[in-house]
Amino acid sequence: MDSFCSTLVRQAGAILAAALCLGLAYNASSPLGVLSPAAAQPLVTVWPQVKQLLAQSRIDLVDARSAAAFEAGHIPGAVSLPFPELERRIAEFSRQHASTQPLVIYCESLDCPDAHAEATALASRYGYGDVREMPGGYAEWRQAEAGGGARP
């Protein structure tokens, strides 16, 4: 290896080592760092943001309510994955939704804990890398899109 190549490799290695150290330290200290799946807490989002991402096909929308509630009415484009049935249905869900696919989970309203629980489980137990929770849920969508009354 000539002196140019050995200098290039030495410098590139030093830059990589410095970037690794700085990256790990910055990520650990930043509130906006990338979390490991085990420590991941779902990010929170709201309907206007979800609407835009959904229109661009950048997310899959997941309804964590019961199958009966989903049948009675749901946000258009959502798929049903009831939280109580998560363990039984996760294999089928994983076949249709890769773990790299961004997901947004919702349930009935702010009073419903299932969206948070399902989002946390998908991120920490089932390896989904980008899971967000829409706490306002179906009620927020109805308020924004259907005047608070209709159940499509």
Binding site: I15, L16, A18, A19, L20, L22, G23, L24, Y26, N27, G33, V34, S36, P37, S99, T100, G127, G129
Partner: peptide, 14 residues
């Protein structure tokens, strides 16, 4: 996913 997370952490500093 680990490789993508690692890239997200290191690439900006590179």
């Amino acid at each position: 996913g680990g490789l993508l997370r690692g890239s997200a952490i290191v690439m900006p500093w590179l």
